[in-house]
Design a protein around this nucleic acid. Structure first.
Length: 581
RNA sequence: GGUCGCAUAGCUCAGCUGGAUAGAGCAUCUGCCUUCUAAGCAGAGGGUCUCAGGUUCGAAUCCUGAUGCGAUCACCA
């Protein structure tokens, strides 16, 4: 059920038939021919740019082509009116019945309305969050988490086969630091007093971990050498942290499909295998890097390192995969990890990084291109910073001041729905202000409540209708006679609702879930506007106790709005609310 | 200095991968609760889309350069 797609199809068919009758040249590219709703509704329901797109290719005047197309389309019974406008737009007005008939179909499709197959079941891996397993998720990760999850939902809705994945950085030195910190908590649990020196994690969230280790091991490691307890404590600490992180994510409604351990790459030869793959292509060498351009770090010195020739694949410089002491850099397991993703036969990879990781984009893309022989594309989305505000003042977090806000704190204070919606009302590549007071304000300033309220209002109407003994179950609405919709402002809403499938496809194509949020806001706005018209114009109210047929057709429209809001909120990961009091 | 991103109303931001007279919210001003939820609606004012070139039927959108802001920049993850 996508009227825009139908008309687009119709336009393309007409163009093809003009080609076969030689009215148009044969070799034309229709790729950029679109059918969309014109901004100004006086220009009709839909508008196509076909004539202008093709004018140059066909070496004809736009209006000439528009005229040919018009003559082709004018016989179609679905189209009530058609005209050429401006530089060559073809403006179509569909017959009203087309719009009316859409409503029962939408109600019937319900949760499936808007679901698209443009993804063609292609396998997409979305890697996001991937926060270090050294503590709870904090606010800085939240945006990436919400964006990644919503993007995954969106792609799923658009017909992709999506895997949500979290890469656990459990291989590096920071895990030793974590294990040592846990050890301190373990000592503490055994009655010793401890001191957290620089380079350890003093967070209280490790206290229970220390206690559980005491339960498991008693005091056997209190006097022991580090070598004895470190491996055990590492593993236990990582497991505990991941449990913490998983439940943090769950509080935002996020569930990963795969948790992939960096550590699992070590000692199995998998890093070596991936690097051999690159080596075989002549992309690995021993060498020296040029000093960074511009101002030189004070302690810079030339070092011989094992390097990946990422500059051959668009990176600015080659990148080290081994440190000067022979250890892998973080980049080496990352290469192996992505090699593994490639071997798992994904068609497309998406990584969500914070803006502070922008510097790794080129090298990661280079690695994937090299490893997959340019066959698999890696897209990296950067989420910009979230600036926190409290009482209108910028709110600075610092570990030392102890006012570090965890995701859990945030969700407990403002709720999952608000957090998610607000974070999605911005393009991912623009910074976002998050004002604690504003998001909690239940006003029209707050888009979450605005959209939720529209949904709740619809529910309220349906409830009232039931009280008035009108059967408003979906089955009844599906068979409603839509002739009760008389007013153009009702048709206006229907048109907006019918844009939903097209919007899903566009948002998915651009990987921009925020478009869903904005669309829902617009839809809610139109619904509220329509609602209020019922005040002055009783005929526009939904319930007419003296006329069930009329009520049903209007209620079906309202129901279709609720369906779209529900489906849209589903993509954003926000719960619709039946009632707001 | 290199790289990436951003620059649209007083403020916060959309702008449908180049379309018709650039749109919302907040703030300011004016109206609307005996009515299906006023957490709402209707209306007014507010613009050199940072600047300069370029591409073409047509540019806020694409390209080049400048300016400003943010992130990042061997050896950490």
């Amino acid at each position: 059920m996508n009227l825009f797609a139908n008309v687009h199809e119709l336009v393309l068919e007409s163009l093809a038939s003009l080609q076969s009758s030689r009215a148009l040249p044969a070799d034309l590219d229709f790729k950029n021919v679109t059918v969309e709703a014109p901004r100004d509704s006086s220009h009709g329901d839909m508008s196509t740019n076909a004539a202008m797109i093709l004018a140059k290719q066909a070496k004809m005047r736009p209006r000439e082509i528009a005229d040919l197309l018009l003559k082709k389309l004018v016989s179609n019974t679905q189209i009530e009116h058609i005209e050429i406008a401006g530089p060559g737009f073809l403006n179509l007005t569909l017959s009203k019945s087309i719009w009316l008939e859409a409503i029962p179909q939408i109600v019937k499709l319900n949760k499936e309305f808007g679901r698209s197959s443009i993804g063609k079941e292609k396998r997409v891996n979305v890697e996001f969050v991937s926060a270090n397993p050294t503590g709870p998720i904090h606010v800085g990760h939240t945006r990436g988490a919400v964006f990644g999850d919503a993007l995954a939902n969106l792609l799923d809705f658009a017909g992709y086969n999506v895997t949500r994945e979290y890469y656990i950085n459990d291989g590096g030195a920071q895990i030793d630091a974590l294990a040592r910190s846990v050890y301190l908590r373990y000592l503490e649990a055994n009655g010793n007093s401890v001191e957290f020196i620089e380079g350890t994690y003093p967070g209280e969230y490790l206290i229970p971990v220390g206690e559980s280790l005491k339960e498991g091991f008693g005091d056997v490691f209190v006097e022991a050498d580090e070598a004895e307890w470190l491996p055990k404590f590492r593993a236990h600490a990582v497991r505990s942290m991941m449990e913490l992180i998983e439940s943090d994510l769950l509080s935002l409604g996020i569930k990963m499909d795969v948790f992939y351990s960096e550590k699992s790459l070590y000692g199995t030869g998998r890093i070596e295998t991936a690097l051999e793959e690159l080596s075989a292509k002549g992309l690995i060498y021993e060498g020296y890097l040029d000093p960074p351009k511009g101002k030189l770090p004070e302690d810079w010195e030339p070092r011989k390192q094992t390097l990946f020739r990422s500059s051959e694949y668009g990176d600015d410089v080659d990148r080290p995969i081994k440190k000067s002491d022979g250890q892998w850099t973080y980049f080496a397991p990352d290469i192996a990890y992505h090699y593994d993703k490639i071997s798992r036969k994904f068609d497309h990879l998406i990584n969500i990084f914070g803006a502070d990781h922008g510097g790794y984009v080129k090298r990661m893309k280079a690695a994937v291109r090299a490893l997959s022989n340019d066959e698999i594309t890696l897209d990296i989305k950067l989420t910009q910073l979230v600036r926190l505000y409290k009482n209108g003042e910028p709110f600075k977090m610092s570990k030392r001041a102890g006012n570090f806000i965890s995701l859990r704190d945030l969700v407990e204070q403002v709720g999952s729905d608000v957090t998610r919606f607000v974070m999605l009302t911005r393009k991912n590549d623009a910074p976002l202000d998050f004002d604690f007071d504003k998001v909690l304000e239940q006003s029209r300033d707050n888009p979450v409540f605005y959209v939720q309220y529209a949904y709740a209002r619809i529910n309220s109407v349906l409830k009232k209708a039931r009280v008035a003994n009108i059967n408003v179950c979906d089955g009844s609405l599906i068979s409603a006679d839509m002739q009760g919709v008389e007013h153009e402002s009702e048709v206006y809403i229907i048109k907006k609702v019918c844009e939903w499938p097209r919007l899903v496809e566009l948002a998915a194509k651009h990987n921009e879930p925020h478009r869903v949020a904005f669309y829902l806001y617009e839809l809610a706005s139109e619904f509220h506007a329509f609602w209020s018209k019922g005040k002055d114009t009783p005929s526009l109210r939904f319930i007419h106790e003296d006329n069930v047929m009329r009520s049903l057709s209007k209620l079906a429209v309202a129901r279709s709005v609720a369906i779209v809001i529900s489906n849209g909120l589903g993509i954003l990961g926000v719960q619709p609310m039946d009632e707001m009091r």
